[in-house]
């Protein structure tokens, strides 16, 4: 009997590593807690009890889920990522995922002398829809050593918005096929 048990015990961790795709970690809440007879139905494992020290990840996730996002963002995640991607060629000044605003710093393209741009983008809501993003581009030109505001061609803003929406659609289809 004993040699069989020894062999069994020795083989346990080796066997455990062979599961591949069909393998997962057994959660701490899937083991019996013999005192559970008294404390039954309380959350077990990593989410047991009330956090007194540290960051309550579960609570963050719960609250995000309750507010409908489930991602920790309060705006549409695809639009948010797409806007960041689209404006990534400019230096970022600030990004607030809760307010949905992205503000870039001034950026002077290498090819355009005496001209610089800045953009502000607003992701407006949770839905992935064509009017869910607004982009505003500002332009300044160098006039006698002074940067002065100049008009932007009216199609620039909507072109950028179209780019954001196209990128968002791409991200959406990528995540759907996963």
């Amino acid at each position: 009997m004993k040699p069989v048990l020894f062999a069994f015990v020795a083989a346990l961790p080796l066997l455990a590593a062979c599961g591949g795709e069909n393998q997962r970690l057994v959660g701490n809440d899937e083991y019996g807690d013999w005192r559970q007879g008294r404390a039954r139905n309380r959350p077990q494992g990593a989410s047991a009890g009330i956090v007194v020290f540290g960051v309550d990840k579960d609570r963050e996730a719960r609250e995000a889920a309750a507010s409908g996002g489930g991602t920790g963002l309060s705006v549409n995640a695809y639009l948010w990522r797409a806007t960041l991607d689209t404006l990534s060629f400019m230096p970022l000044a600030s990004a607030d995922p809760f307010g949905g605003t992205i503000i870039t710093d001034w950026y002077a393209p290498a090819t355009a002398n005496g001209e610089r741009f800045r953009a502000q983008a607003y992701v407006l809501g949770r839905q992935l829809r064509s009017d869910g993003v607004r982009v505003q581009v500002f332009r300044q030109t160098l006039d006698r050593g002074q940067w002065v505001d100049s008009p932007v061609s009216p199609s620039t803003n909507s072109d950028l918005e179209d780019k954001v929406l196209a990128r968002a659609r791409e991200l959406r289809s990528q995540s759907a096929s996963r």
Partner: peptide, 26 residues
């Protein structure tokens, strides 16, 4: 003679991941 009656004496326990529905422990 409940399972918990076996006692929580100081021990070292190995619990495997689950694969194909099986998990084991020693």
């Amino acid at each position: 003679t409940s399972p918990g009656g076996l006692g929580d004496n100081t021990k070292i326990i190995y619990l495997s991941p689950q694969f194909f529905g099986f998990d084991f422990g020693a």
